[in-house]
Amino acid sequence: MKKALIITYYWPPAGGSGVQRWLKFVKYFRDFGIEPIIYTVENPNYPIMDDSLFKDIPNEIKILKQPIWEPNNLFAFFGKKKTESAGFLNPNPTFFGKILQYIRANYFIPDARKFWVKPSTKYLKQYLKSNSIDIIITTGPPHSMHLIGLNLKKELNIKWLADFRDPWTEIDYFQQLPLTKKAIKKHHFLEKEVLKNADAVLVVGKTMREKFSKFNNNVVTATNGFDGKISVTSSELDTKFTVTHVGLMNADRNPQMLWEVLSEIVAENKEFAADIELKLIGKTDASVIVAIIKYRLSKNVKVIDYVTHDKVVEFQKKSQVLLLIVNNVPSAKGIITGKIFE
């Protein structure tokens, strides 16, 4: 059986979208003759936790862990306080917040997990010398994981697959970061180094594949998907006309036009006003709440904080309509979220 070492920051008990892709890949690796070994963080600082995902980890899988130092206590825009943005950046930071954003953008490249790169390279270099591994796989973001792969590739010439769940320099929030020209140049340099040196690059969609193919001749698309073993039994629909959005609802996803249209219909049609219920499940930015209040939709919108993935599926089954919103950014056309498949 071939052995693959997967280097990932997100692993249960991490919740949210970042953990799903490789947790599900690993769940079925053995069916394809691949024995997965996981390398992840010992003391992670996950913003969302979901213990229900532990059940998807294969029995007796080897999981390697090493400690990480994360300076996230400095970053107000990571959304750790209720008053802060639910997305990657606080759109209205305080003066101190602006300073922290500048430090984060220009001194922690490619991201705040950069301090895990050197110790991980050292640890895994010794592990790979003592154990037979056929391929290493890095998945980002955080794209610091790819720098670990880059170092191991250069030092040991091991087969390396770099998986991009999201773009690097074209990720939603990249253009919003207060980056200096020097920092932008470094991001692009590191991105190209990863793409040029990886034996293969895995991406989630056609747009990313087309752009990355300029730097690597072996770029393969493996879209996100859904777990076929999750129960597909039907559930009774909600009695009300429910419209459900699952996931982050940050400032860039705030659908002002939707609120405006719903507000007009609710004002004109009392029967519709009594029946419509919009559920926002997941971290919701303060600007979205403000817009809901502005358009007098508070009675029709139910904001539900993060729930476990199995409970999310139940909400989806019972809903009359599922709402999908992507960030209002230039790279939006390349975003193919896992929610589409579910």
Rank of each mutant, 00 (worst) to 15 (best):
L237P: 12
K3M: 03
G338K: 03
L89Q: 01
K196N: 14
N328G: 06
L323V: 06
S85T: 06
I57P: 04
G334V: 01
E35W: 10
M249L: 10
T239A: 15
A200W: 10
N216A: 08
L147R: 08
K159W: 07
S213M: 12
I148R: 04
E70H: 12
E342W: 06
F77G: 08
F164R: 05
K181Y: 08
S17F: 06
L177T: 06
I281R: 05
T221K: 12
A105L: 02
N72E: 15
G15S: 00
E277C: 11
K118L: 09
D31I: 07
N106D: 00
R253P: 07
I61K: 07
A162S: 05
F78P: 14
I289D: 01
E264S: 11
H146S: 01
Y28T: 02
K186N: 09
N73V: 14
S319G: 07
M208T: 10
R296K: 11
E210C: 06
K2Y: 11
L128D: 12
K181S: 13
V203N: 04
D31W: 15
K82C: 13
D310P: 02
K154L: 14
D238T: 12
N224Y: 06
A251C: 13
V301S: 04
W116T: 06
T8Q: 09
F174C: 09
K125V: 08
W11A: 01
K81E: 13
L53Q: 01
K80S: 15
